[in-house]
Amino acid sequence: MRNTNTMDATSTGAIKSGMRRKMKARLSWIPVLAALAILILMLIAGQVHFGSFVTPAMLSSLLVDNAYLVVLAAGMTFVILTGGIDLSVGSVMAFTGMLSAKLLSVGVPVALVIPLMLIAGALFGTMIGVLIHFFDVQPFIASLAGMFLARGLCFVVSLEAIQVKDPFVLGLESARLGYGDWYITPTGIIALIVIAIAAWVLAYTRFGRTVYAIGGNEQSARLMGLAVARSKILVYVVSGVCAGIAGLIFTSYTAAGYSLNGIGTELDTIAAVVIGGTLLTGGSGYMVGSLIGVFVYGVIKTAITYLGADASWERISIGILLLAFVVVQRFIVARANRN
């Protein structure tokens, strides 16, 4: 035993680990690629089935109509990457929308209203994050409280829908920059900018890397001396701010603030993020995956409209897709553990 040639052992080990490494590196992208494959397959199937499904107008509307969801998914990705969950986003989106509609209707200038929306979202996020980190409340429950609170506060603002007439807010949706049949609205641009910034933060900042580290192993992250407490709270703040931005987009999209907006949106968001390949246990996932996840969701919605099928199929297909992806994730994790 003593005289084993250590050089030999390490070099073969290195070769083996090199091969394994390539497999592993691909492993974390597999779910994203799978989502992309499904998206493309659905587009092709749609094209074959309907004749003219994939058109510039349809692809443009995919982004524009789901801009709010893209923004929400960006925030949710941060939260899920740490291994948490945020159920409050739909309600917070509705609340910030209500708040803006109310403020605008009493004549508060839009330049003040928009920052206020973002601050309101951030406050909700802070509350949830503090409950989770300092009081050891499970993310599910803490964000549930946030969800209740925001939903109830919507009705405190107003029981009725409030129409929004502010030209700037409306312009975010109605203004169209186009090239041929392709078009994009300011809301679409906002969504893309949010995704781009979020992707950059995740990949190129210490906060972003800490988010991954926490999701990978919180205990290790703490022992490595990373700012775990701050980052854990910050992800919920980010998610809250994103809900604020989504509130703005949704208000401009519907031209009104309404208390029942965005019910169930948190589930759509979680589904989109998971379908996009982010591991629910945290630590693995990419922003671009969440964007693809939203598009998959959007295509399902469009296809169901095209089919004239019952709208209920939308939720069922999302449910099935979510299940399929979770099971796939489960096996990937199980395999990674075995290695």
Partner: peptide, 25 residues
Amino acid sequence: INLCTNLTVGENVMLGHEVPGRFGI
């Protein structure tokens, strides 16, 4: 071992001490 298995080797070595560049790390 208190490292993060979901990150790269380099990150595990340098996490918290990354070299800053003009656009982030």
